[in-house]
Amino acid sequence: MQHKFKDIFQKLGFFFIMMFLGITTAMAQQQEVEMADVMRSNGKIYAVVAVCLIILFGLFFYVFTIDRKLSKLEKENK
């Protein structure tokens, strides 16, 4: 009995995978709008994200140090 279920599941699974592949390829053919898929597929977009994050961290660090300096000055001036 168990064997039979496993068999059916395997067949169903195969069927769904094939269907999914068919749908995705059909969809890929429909959409002709160019996107940076290549860039994402070989992972280079992550470099851009990393660069922007570094800039963001740098910016925040800078603003943070100014904030701290100001707090110090405010304490001294009290």
């Binding site: 994402r40 992550y46 994200v49 963001l56």
Partner: peptide, 11 residues
């Protein structure tokens, strides 16, 4: 929020 913006915004 800005870390989220940059990561999710690009990916």
């Amino acid at each position: 929020l800005l870390i989220y913006t940059i990561t999710a915004g690009f990916l």
